[in-house]
Structure formats: structure tokens, C-alpha cells
Design a binder for these strands. Sequence first.
DNA 1: CGCCTCATTGACCTAGTTCAATTTGGGTGG
DNA 2: CCACCCAAATTGAACTAGGTCAATGAGGCG
Lengths: 258, 258
Amino acid sequence: MADGIGLARAAIEPALPEERVAKFIRTLRQRFSFSDEEQQQLISRMGGEAFFHKGDTLVDEGEWIEYSSLLFSGYACREKIDREGNRQIVEIQIPGDFVDLHSYPMEQLDHAITALTDCRIVKLYHKEIDDLIDKHPRFARLLWFSTIVDTSIHREWILNLGSRAGSQRMGHFLCEMYCRMEVVGLVEDGRYDLPLTQKDLGEALGFTPIHVNRTLKKLRSLGLADFRNQKVTIDDFDALADHCGFDASYLYLTPRKK
Amino acid sequence: MADGIGLARAAIEPALPEERVAKFIRTLRQRFSFSDEEQQQLISRMGGEAFFHKGDTLVDEGEWIEYSSLLFSGYACREKIDREGNRQIVEIQIPGDFVDLHSYPMEQLDHAITALTDCRIVKLYHKEIDDLIDKHPRFARLLWFSTIVDTSIHREWILNLGSRAGSQRMGHFLCEMYCRMEVVGLVEDGRYDLPLTQKDLGEALGFTPIHVNRTLKKLRSLGLADFRNQKVTIDDFDALADHCGFDASYLYLTPRKK
DNA sequence: CGCCTCATTGACCTAGTTCAATTTGGGTGG
DNA sequence: CCACCCAAATTGAACTAGGTCAATGAGGCG
């Protein structure tokens, strides 16, 4: 595991994991200067792949965790279940996301991570992170940053659930996914995949599936967004963003100004 | 700034900052073994106090941040304002909380931090954290952990706003505050201070102030909780926790089992 | 072809909002 | 100590966004 080639060898498909890992690194590079050598330092420490089927649990609540998983294909979500069995989706994970980097400091999660589609992940063992930080302390701040973006996304969801209603709450969610998908090259002609049912959408947004249906109908009739067959089409992103007061700065996707 | 004495000298009142800093450290020690020397390493790097009045902004959205603030007396909240001017409180900060340790990796926040009462903070400059991690890489994981607990709290709020209604949503919030106040010794005879108006409570829970009033009335009539004059009384915590399905594990306050 | 899951629509119901008025209590100046 | 003020709490009444219940369609698949 001296370099990225080890990863390619381990791949089941001909796809090069480096390309997917690069999605994650590209996001980081938008905020931090990052030498090629540092990039190699990180990639070389990643090793071991795993495959999950739709519906599988990638990480279970309370499970003892030794490595973090970088999602390089497929979609997953983080979810919490309350006493009555209500499911709340708290975040959607897309290719290029480290789905549980926060398990490095945390060691056990308070929520489960479930595959929304078949998924492939690359592992980064926590002992490798220890070693990486030991030798290159700068990585602490860098990897830490990437977990803190999730915190920011959570805060915006709190705002979304607490302060926005109906089509604005829904539209805001679709805007967020649009922006996140775009940086990893998964938006084409205003379209992207969103492998959720209307029931799932309801569980993310605090709506009943019936209300989700009506909300989507409204956005469609306003010409702002269309969700059909697990695909989202947004012809005029700015119009939708304006409709729901979406401002992408909480996603920390743009370079810092300083 | 070779030791904690520097802090005491800087204090405006005779209160010893170490005692308050210790609240933060005590919380960490519940999960990490922590030598006295390490504790000293951390405390010795903290320096500089600041005082804020009720209503002041401790940290503004988008502001460039060079140090993180440990709240050692008073209460604050993190809030986001949307385009329409609606305010959403996303977390309450109590004595012993690092209110913006996440500004170390993030450097600019997506939200503001506002004083709910007069507040006193101790600073930890980010360059000191750099140095600390450089010399003692173990601190990276440890401080990182403490920011990740906020992420977990945010997730539970998403669940609370998305899945719980009425008195259960309110009760859950009161349970959380009870538990967090208890570890820092601020609960006496089932009572603790909560310096919020009913309007503020509504802005935290996604309710109108009128509904907050009715929800509180209901909890009072059920004998589960009483909020009056910015003080919460919970005679039977277990009964309240049972009423709203509260499980404190997301607060990561108990020692790890492993 | 028939099954099964998901989407869609209608009718009705309720939790929570809105609007408006009244009360309470702490603080302040005379 | 009292009179006054003001912010916050409380209550009532009417209204509505969203939930509940129930039925119908529509697409995918063995």
C-alpha cells in the first residue's frame, strides 16, 4: 500500500478508485492548498474496498468502528429511528463523500448509515489517520474540516425543518443536492439522480408521503423542479434558489476569500 | 503563558478560570483518558478573556476567526437568519462549552453566536491549537471529538423537528438541556436556568410563541416539566424522558464501554 | 398475467398558526 | 412606596397547512 496503485489492484471493476478519491480531494482543494505529495500521502493510506447492496447497513448505530468509508460509487443516507419507529433521514451521501469520517474521533455513531443503492466504498483505517496526523499534523485540520461541513449541513437542515414550509422546504433540499452533485460532476443538463422514494423524501423533510407528492406537484406546476423516476430536473436553478431562499455558502464549496 | 496562572492573573473577577476550563476538560475525560500533564498542556495554551453583554454577538456569520472561545460563564446560542428574517436557534451553549471550536478547521462560520446573558469567555488561539497538535498529535482527535458532539446534537435536533410534535418536541429539548447542565453541575433539585423567552423557545423548536405557551402549559398540567421565569423544574426526569422518548446517548456524556 | 411497490388524488380532520385582546410581573422614576 | 411602563405570558376564536384515511393508477418484474 505504498501508493495508489494498490487501490487499483483491489478494484473489482476496472474503474480507478483514484478518480473517486479525487472527488473528495478536489472538494478539499477548493479550500486548502494541497500539494501533490500530500494528496499522495492521503491516497496511499487508503486501502480495502467493500461492496454493499441497496438496503444494506454500511455502519450500524453503536457499532465499534475501526475505519472510515469513502463512498466512491452509489448513494447512502444517515438515518435515526425514534422509539415509535419513525425514521428520520438526516443526510444524503453521494459519491466522493466520506460517509463516516466523524467515526474517527467518535468511534461509535449515534446513527446508522444505509445504502440507498448498491454502493462501493474505500476504507481508511483509523490507525492510518493516527499515523498520518502524527507525521503530517496539517492533515488534522484538513480532515477535521471535512467533517465540519456535515455539521454545517445539519444546521441548515435544522433551519429548513424549523423555518421553511411546503415547496420552499422541498426546493431547498433539491437545491442542496444539486450543488453537491454538481461539484462531483453528477449534474447533466440540470438533471441528477436522487434515488429516493417519496416516502424517503418525507422522512428527510418531516412530511408525510402524501404531502411530498403535493409539494412536488406544486414545484412542477411552478416550473421550478421536477422529480420523477428518481431523477431531478431543474431547468432554472436560480429561479428555484430564489423561490426558496437558498444560499449555498453553508456548503463551503467555494475557495476562501481571506 | 507557561501555565494556568497567567489565566488567573487576567481574570477580572476573583473566579479562577481553571475551574471553568475544568468543566470542559471533565467532559472530555469522561471519554478519553487524559493525564494531568496533558490537561496542563491544554490549559496553559488558553489565554485572554473577553466579556460580552446580553444580546451581543460573540462571533458573527462570515467573520474571520483567529481563536476559539470557551464559555466559562453565561449562556449563548447559535442562530441562523433566513432571507425573510426568521431566526432559527440551532444550539444553546452553556458554561463549559467551546462555543466555536469548529471555527478552527472552518475559519469562518455559517452562523452567528449571540449572548443570551452576560458572558465571559477564555480564548484559545488557533495558532496555539496548531502548535498543540504539532507537539501532541493526540489532541487532534480529542478536540475534534468535542466538535463532533455538536454534530450529533444537531442530528438529534433534526430528528426532533422532523419527527416529534408538541409536548414531546418541547420535552425532548428540556431533557437535553437538563442532561447537559447536569454534567457541569448546574442542576439543583431538578431545577436549572434557561435564559430564553417563549419566543426564543419557539425559534429553537419551530413553533410560534403562542404554541410554545400552550405546549408548556400542557407539560405543566401533566406534571412533567415547568418553565417559568427562565427556570426549568423537572421533578421526575425519567417520567419526562419517557414521555418524549429521550435517550441521552447522542450527547456522548458517558464513558465508552469498549 | 398477476403481483407488488410506489405515485396520485379526493375527502375529511387536527395540530398548529394567525390575529387580537388581556394579564402579569419586573423595572424605573418620582 | 407608589404609579407607570414595557416586555413577556396567557387566553380566546377563527383559520389553514399539513396529516389521516381510503381508493385508484401506473410501472416494473417474475
